Amino acid sequence: MKRILILLFSIILIYSCNKTEVHNDYGFYYWRSTFNLNKNEQQTLHKSKVENLYTRFFDVVKQNDQFLEFGVININKEISTDKKIVPVIFITNETWFNIKPNDIQFLADRINDRINRIQSNNLLNPANEIQIDSDWTASTKNDYFKFLQTLKQVSKKNISCTLRLHQVKDKLQTGVPPVDKMYLMCYATSSPLENQTKNSILDVPTLKSYLRNLEDYPVKLDIALPIYSWGIVTNHLGKKKLINALTAEELMQNKNFKIINENNFEVLKDDFYYGLYLNKGFKIKIEEIAEKDITESLNFIDEKLDYPFNIIYYHLDERFTKNYNTLFQ
């Protein structure tokens, strides 16, 4: 009996050790318009174990039936990293509205050509993967899925895509993309432009509600988690705008802002701040992500998935990474 108990204990111990290693490896998205890492960012990236850096190359929108590229990345010629670069292309869901079959082929060819030009014109180490980020819906899924298949045929590369929380919850309606790998975006749990007290970047109870049946999702996932922040500005009429990368620390150090409570501030003087003209009396709500919320989200997902997955943090920027040193050991 004693030998049986020892054997059972050993099995449990081995299983527990394996579970703690499920999300041991982490990497990063890079989402700035200029590819340029400072020394601290290079060190943070070098310590990460995931071999890829998921780098936004450009966005695609459709205007007047024309496909337009916005925000094409500018790459510092002297940049060096040992990571392979995975191009990430954001495509608006509106792009798929009333798209024709020949337009799908045209778009796949054009995106592939643009990626190849960016890579060949710069000293990049390309991965054999292209990632597409698009918030498809039940009405656009067929055309979007056809595009993913077409891009794979054109590029001869592995095609991955992002997965949003509502697409997990409503997978019977939104469908499952024809790809081998997906990246679950565990953020944007609600709209920052709504009137609410929840953190719109990551509210853990909301995330758990959306992912209650995550174990049933049929495609293997890596997990994208947020480490960014922003400020939600509300004017006198209740209209809202975002200031990206704003922190409570910055506002507390500025005499032109009055703290209302831990994350809410009031503008004391009319002036330009962080790219916007703000009037006295405007309110700013800061949304940042506590490390405990990241840990709780990971523990929940870990219990749902029975296979190893990587964590991809959004995104690589010293303004954010400096606040999560224990995550990047």
Rank of each mutant, 00 (worst) to 15 (best):
L8D: 10
F9W: 09
S10P: 03
I11P: 09
I12K: 15
L13C: 13
Y15H: 08
Y15R: 05
Y15E: 11
Y15W: 12
N18S: 12
N18R: 10
T20D: 10
T20I: 15
E21H: 07
H23S: 14
Y26D: 00
Y29R: 07
Y30H: 02
W31F: 09
W31C: 06
N36I: 09
K39D: 13
K39Y: 15
E41W: 04
K47D: 05
N52M: 10
L53F: 01
L53D: 01
R56L: 06
D59E: 11
V61A: 11
Q63H: 13
D65W: 12
Q66P: 03
Q66F: 05
F67S: 09
L68H: 10
G71Y: 06
G71W: 07
I73C: 00
N74K: 11
N74V: 14
N74A: 10
E78Q: 13
E78C: 06
S80L: 08
S80E: 11
S80T: 11
D82V: 02
V86Q: 02
V88Q: 06
N93R: 13
E94S: 12
E94G: 07
T95E: 06
T95M: 07
W96E: 04
I99Y: 13
I99S: 08
P101H: 03
N102V: 04
D103C: 06
D103K: 12
I104L: 06
Q105S: 10
L107M: 01
D109N: 14
R110Q: 05
I111M: 01
D113R: 11
I115A: 00
R117Q: 08
R117S: 04
R117G: 01
Q119E: 15
S120M: 06
N122C: 04
P126T: 02
A127G: 10
N128Y: 10
I130N: 01
Q131M: 07
I132G: 05
S134P: 00
S134R: 01
D135S: 08
N142Q: 15
D143S: 15
D143K: 14
F147K: 02
L148M: 02
Q149W: 08
Q149H: 12
L151F: 03
V154F: 04
